[in-house]
Design a protein around this nucleic acid. Structure first.
Lengths: 150, 150
DNA sequence: CCTTGAGTTGAAGTTCGCTTCAACTTGCAC
DNA sequence: GTGCAAGTTGAAGCGAACTTCAACTCAAGG
């Protein structure tokens, strides 16, 4: 039989710990049938879901958002290749933006390495529009950005 | 006088909450003098430290590592432009690697969007070396990578 | 003076994504 | 049968990076 996977098997094949799989289930990211003795049995399709979860995490998407995305899959039929492609496409922009921002950070950092500034004053890193030039004894505003992708 | 900043002023100018500044101090990332009444007064140089901390966080460096980096600044003299540039350079590689990995993820994702796979089987995303072709009823190993930059 | 906003502390709470633990129960090979 | 690895649960713990709270104290303008 190659329909049902035990949690151990799914863990091994997906590279995700059993405890994490149970956690995903609690959050509604994956589902499992139960044996008479109450053990989980996963349909093969869950493997693909777990794949999508891990890939999404690398893109920097939270489990909650991943859940929402997975919820948008058709409930009635087995998701098709196009269904998965649609979800993947939906992360594309986030990934692009993330790459763009890091690229900008790198360029700015290179500029700062050149001038040794980090000055919070003229440095584009901290003062994007030079909007604070001559603004009393120092400028404000670092990056409004939050601590970045954990 | 433009030497001493109160915690509120440093917070406003750096864009970092007072509670976060106190937290950074506890971790040894920044320092402050005290008034007779025990209130913090920050030297202007601390502004640059806070700038460095926030930038480093965007690069994805932990506060502990940032602390180590800041500890490498000369204690005797005021850090020079070159001192700061050296620290900035030290993050450069991490940033490059991060950008490279996200770029690869994007390319792989594009490939998967094309084929709609995410199959864990042939997809380079999950099976980098095609090492599992024809490996029983399904392959293993998603990405061994951890949940990515939080 | 007095009021009021800003600052002080330590301890506890928060969010995210899991892991660990204790105390059992199942499933399967022998 | 029996033995043992693998599975079950809920509750608690973890680490990172902060925030919130309560209970005060300071600083500065009027």
């Amino acid at each position: 039989m190659h329909e049902a996977l035990t949690i151990g098997q799914l863990a091994e094949r997906s590279g995700v710990a059993p405890s994490a799989l149970r956690y995903y289930e609690r959050l509604g990211l994956i589902r499992a049938e139960r044996t008479g003795g109450n053990q989980r049995r996963y349909a093969r399709g869950e493997l693909r879901r777990v794949a999508f979860i891990r890939i999404s995490q690398q893109v920097g998407v939270s489990l909650e958002e991943i859940r929402a995305a997975l919820d948008s899959l058709p409930a009635s039929r087995t998701p098709s290749a196009e269904d998965w492609a649609r979800l993947s496409r939906s992360w594309r922009d986030r990934l692009d933006e993330k790459i763009r921002l890091l690229g900008k950070l790198r360029d700015d950092l290179d500029g700062c390495i050149g001038c040794g500034c980090l000055s919070l004053r003229r440095c584009t890193l901290n003062n994007p529009g030079d909007s604070l030039a001559g603004d009393g004894p120092g400028a404000r505003l670092l990056l409004p950005a939050p601590p970045a992708t954990p």
